[in-house]
């Protein structure tokens, strides 16, 4: 990471998150720091409840951290949101059920006040890019989960975001569809040159789609390990057969679960979670 930290990429500095509900105090994140230079692809990986989605939601200006700073392209998440420099794709495709696919993909442009003709042109372009041409007039309920997720990616791309924030975008899909979409996303990323931050719980998805993988540990959520993936940006399906892929896979697995053979601590639900 040679470029100036935080200047133009995504920057998380000593971010902490504490939830208080009456007497209960839950520490969701503690001392999280990560720099993602512009144009890079990064993943946050960890077990559910480790705070990886919270970190992404801080960058998307959905929640505010209780300590530390987050910067998106050198400005606060709120300023970045107002300037529409990032787009969020979540696990649920959040397609409005009463809008056809074209109208759903146009939504971001419509909110931004782009005129009708331009809106349609850019939405059709994005729909073609994600491979949904011919489905413009379909309702979301008529498409499969994978196709709805493609549409959500198309909607995110219409605003030509510098930063693409994805919260387990393929988490609800089957393994086969998921891997297909991983490589589709690689192709799209190269065409758009966007910076990617992906939240996932799939080790292989993290390797396929990242230059940097940050491993998170739960209770309290923190970044425990960072692995650089040296595959460059010219990636094909053959990368999965590369011995280096397997090496990254085991490195990440060990970072997530501890070294092989070592006794794993039983995950006991903390009382505060049980009460909430």
């Amino acid at each position: 990471m040679a470029s100036q930290p935080g200047e133009s990429g995504l920057s998380i500095r000593d971010v902490g998150m504490v939830y208080r509900r009456g007497e209960q105090v839950t520490t969701a994140l503690v001392g999280c720091s990560l720099e993602i230079p512009e144009g890079n692809w990064a993943s946050l990986i960890g077990a559910s409840g480790c705070g990886k989605s919270t970190l992404l939601r801080i960058l998307a200006d959905i929640v505010r951290p209780t300590s530390g700073t987050a910067l998106v392209g050198g400005v606060t998440p709120a300023e970045a949101r107002a300037a529409r420099t990032f787009a969020l794709v979540s696990q649920q495709s959040t397609m409005l059920p009463w809008r056809k696919i074209l109208a759903n993909v146009e939504l971001g442009l419509e909110v931004a006040g782009v005129d009708k003709v331009e809106r349609k042109r850019r939405a059709e372009e994005a729909i073609e890019l994600v491979g949904l041409k011919g489905f413009e007039q379909a309702f979301p309920s008529e498409l499969s989960g994978g196709m709805r997720q493609r549409a959500a990616i198309a909607r995110a791309l219409t605003l030509k975001p510098r930063f693409l924030l994805m919260d387990e975008p393929f988490g609800a899909l089957d393994e086969i569809t998921r891997e297909k979409l991983n490589f589709e996303l690689l192709r799209i990323l190269k065409e758009t040159s966007a910076t990617l931050l992906l939240v996932t719980h799939s080790i292989s998805e993290a390797i396929i789609l990242s230059d940097t993988v940050a491993v998170m540990s739960p209770r309290p959520g923190r970044i425990s390990h960072v692995v650089d993936i040296g595959f460059g940006h010219e990636r094909t399906g053959a990368m999965r057969d590369d011995p280096q892929f397997g090496a990254y896979e085991s490195e990440l697995r060990h970072a997530l679960h501890g070294p092989a053979g070592a006794p794993r601590p039983m995950a006991t639900p903390s009382p505060s979670h049980a009460l909430a």
Partner: peptide, 26 residues
């Protein structure tokens, strides 16, 4: 309307009026 729709419109910097028109009223 599901909170996911509101968050989606929030990240798009939609106004309250746009949220009403595009999600809550339908």
């Amino acid at each position: 309307a599901d909170v996911d729709y509101h968050e989606m419109l929030h990240t798009l910097s939609a106004s309250r009026w746009q949220r009403l028109k595009m999600v809550d009223l339908p």
